[in-house]
Nucleic acid binder design. Sequence first.
DNA 1: ATCTTACATTGACGATCATCGATATGACCA
DNA 2: TGGTCATATCGATGATCGTCAATGTAAGAT
Lengths: 128, 128
Amino acid sequence: MVPTATQTAIAAADTADRHRAASDSSGCCSLAAGPIGVDDAHRSAGMFKALADPMRLRLLSHVAAQGCEAVCACDLTEDLGISQSTVSHHMKKLVDAGLIAREQRGKWAHYTVVPEAFAALRSLLEIG
Amino acid sequence: MVPTATQTAIAAADTADRHRAASDSSGCCSLAAGPIGVDDAHRSAGMFKALADPMRLRLLSHVAAQGCEAVCACDLTEDLGISQSTVSHHMKKLVDAGLIAREQRGKWAHYTVVPEAFAALRSLLEIG
DNA sequence: ATCTTACATTGACGATCATCGATATGACCA
DNA sequence: TGGTCATATCGATGATCGTCAATGTAAGAT
């Protein structure tokens, strides 16, 4: 129950993030613009956390390499040699972070990158 | 012994990363350039992992906000309200990831950002 | 030489995570 | 209705992580 409530809160926060990723203060300003607040730090760290796993980066690059063309989950499973439940787990994290978008077509799930999210991260990293 | 060996290997890899961060394949190419390999994924994930913690982002923004002027560890400890050992722990991770540089002045440790590392991360995130 | 100051390292603890097999959901087909 | 396929969710397990108090280290100060 406790982890469920926590998970729900995190999921809700992530969903909110996704919708304002390109306009929020956490997405438009550089880390060098001044000491950031606790809330912004948590939001930004959540996005970086989604990128902080080798398998997720490989999944992401598989999706990104297709450009506008959507990628189906079954291809990812066989290309990377991990179990189907692990792929599903990672893709959910990437979607919750707003980095990729999920579209249901019949019984297939198709994924594409969300360019605005990456633009927001790049502006966060504009330092020096 | 096992964690020490592992830690040593990771530190060595991270140090190597720092020196080639701006020229290596993991630092100059976008994730969208094609499916990335296992080694590149581990290297890049290591850098994102250093950014994937709220407290480290706040420490980093404190350092980045000073521009060229170096920041001393004592200021970070009192500004963020965490213990001295925790600050030391986080700064070591940021230095090992090559995101900030450490300079010893007498008994004080001073920190500055490493712009090339952030440039490398930004080019990794050039998607869409 | 002794003491203080600034920082690093160690050891421990609770929390989170990645991964898997098993199972549930939900869409299509016969 | 029953069956198969694609994906999501659950439960468990071993690993990693963030944090702190305690201790170690090394550089000034007295």
